[in-house]
């Protein structure tokens, strides 16, 4: 696990998930799993966020919203796609209204597997995102533009 000087805040958005992954993301914040021990807080404001956690595949109406939220998060930022729907569209990929995974709209850094994704794997995914965030921060300091 990487060492971080600052506490990364996450922003969660449900692109078109069934809720299963959403409630597991929330479960991560509660006493049993408690991601706050890594200094992570769930925020509702994109301008405060470092890590963008998305559940569910992208549909026609949510793709604009996802893009909008992504643009509002200040760099450096990391995107974590939680659950199989966010990776590929999952069981719903053949539905007429589903475009596919999150990567059809914005670049994704970490994919978390599972249907629904288990809190343990979500935490693993967020911890992996922390080290990517740190790399991006260093790159920014050197003057390189992060991805």
């Amino acid at each position: 696990m990487s060492y971080l000087k600052k506490s990364p805040w996450i922003l969660h958005y449900d692109a078109s998930s069934c809720n299963g992954c959403d409630i597991e993301v929330l479960a991560c914040l509660t006493p049993l799993y408690d991601v706050e021990r890594f200094g992570i807080i769930n925020t509702g404001n994109p301008k405060h966020a470092d890590i963008f956690v998305i559940t569910g595949g992208i549909n026609e109406q949510s793709s604009v919203v996802v893009k909008n939220i992504y643009d509002q998060i200040p760099s450096p930022k990391v995107v974590v796609a939680v659950g199989i729907c966010a990776a590929t569209g999952g069981v719903f990929r053949e539905c007429y209204n589903i475009k596919g995974g999150v990567n059809t709209t914005i670049p994704v850094d970490v994919y978390v597997p599972g249907c629904a994704a288990r809190p343990e794997s979500i935490i693993d995914g967020i911890v992996a995102a922390l080290s990517i965030l740190e790399e991006k921060r260093k790159a920014m300091k050197k003057g390189e533009t992060p991805l």
Binding site: S16, G56, S62, F92
Partner: peptide, 11 residues
Amino acid sequence: IGYIHRGLEKL
């Protein structure tokens, strides 16, 4: 509404 409409009844 419609932000998470998937159309799964069609499946």
